[in-house]
Design a protein around this nucleic acid. Structure first.
Length: 280
DNA sequence: ATGCCCGACCCCGTCGGA
């Protein structure tokens, strides 16, 4: 099974590119972020014609997450337990929940498409929202792992964190900025402390996943590595290959992010629990 | 060439992105 994540930066502006890439790249399941639309605006037809079903969570022109899959999806969740909201308090005093998380199960693999809040600036309320959002996601992940110790899980998407200084082209440019601050990096490492791991980095040690549209960032290769597939131990065992599709930043009307892809070998997974220990 | 920001909104400026 070939699984990918891609911040598409508006699906309506890029549906042709995304569907062409899905077919050309032989992708089974794609988690998308920043679809920037609600369900009534989503271009379902192009996906259906290519053989993909779509589930999505989109509330308005901001954020929005989706899955396209040519394998059956079930157990769809459009939030995680405890997910913080942001903005103006509603009548009941709670903050509005944004469309930043979508979970599906495909072939017993639990997948989340995540769009972690940007943070904006270190002194912006959005930064504390980002840290709280990650903390609650980690707490929920800990609970889930305890309840499903052998089921493969991947948290994939735009994490809006550069975990290492080498994940940005020039660390000095980011002094005092979000994405590289120690609290953000600690929030990211908390997932590793739960047993999750970036399953792409060992196979693709270098390379960025995002280049700003401004200031010739892509031609100069001034990018950031902020899109990750974080797999549980059971997921890590399945991974046979990975790639960052840098070519998708080229050409007409690209997203500012590129797809990140992993191949999973599910052929022996079901044997683990049930096979008799003939040679035991 | 991979080339000086883009998308969504609603009006042609503002917000958000990282």
């Amino acid at each position: 099974m070939r699984v990918a994540t891609w911040n598409v930066n508006s699906i309506r502006a890029r549906v042709g590119r995304v569907v062409d890439w899905l077919v050309r790249s032989d992708i089974d399941v794609l988690g998308m972020q920043e679809i920037k639309c609600k369900e009534s605006q989503f271009p379902f037809e192009a996906f259906h014609e290519a053989g993909y079903e779509v589930v999505l969570h989109g509330l308005n022109q901001w954020n929005g997450v989706a899955f396209a899959s040519r394998l059956p999806m079930h157990d769809v969740s459009n939030t995680f337990s405890g997910m913080p909201g942001f903005g103006k308090a509603q009548d009941d005093g709670s903050l509005p929940l944004e469309a930043r998380a979508l979970g599906v199960t495909v072939d017993d693999v639990r997948l989340w498409s995540l769009y972690v809040p940007n943070g904006r600036d270190l002194d912006n309320p959005h930064y504390l929202y980002k840290l709280a959002w990650l903390k609650e996601l980690a707490a929920e992940t800990r609970t889930w792992l305890a309840a499903h110790p052998s089921q493969p899980l991947a948290l994939m998407g735009d994490w809006n964190i550069a975990p290492f200084d080498t994940d940005v082209w020039d660390r000095s440019v980011f002094e005092g900025s979000t994405h590289v601050s120690e609290p953000e990096r600690a929030a990211f490492r908390a997932f590793e402390e739960l047993g999750l791991a970036d399953v792409v980095r060992p196979l693709v040690p270098t390379g960025y996943t995002y280049w700003d549209y401004k200031q010739l960032r892509f031609p100069r290769n001034e990018g950031m590595r902020i899109d990750f597939i974080m797999g549980s131990p059971a997921f890590q065992e399945l991974v046979t290959a990975a790639r960052i599709d840098r070519d998708e930043r080229k050409g007409d009307a690209p997203s500012d992010h590129v797809p990140v892809v992993v191949d999973l070998d599910l052929s022996t997974e079901e044997d683990d629990d049930d096979r008799p220990m003939i040679f035991g």
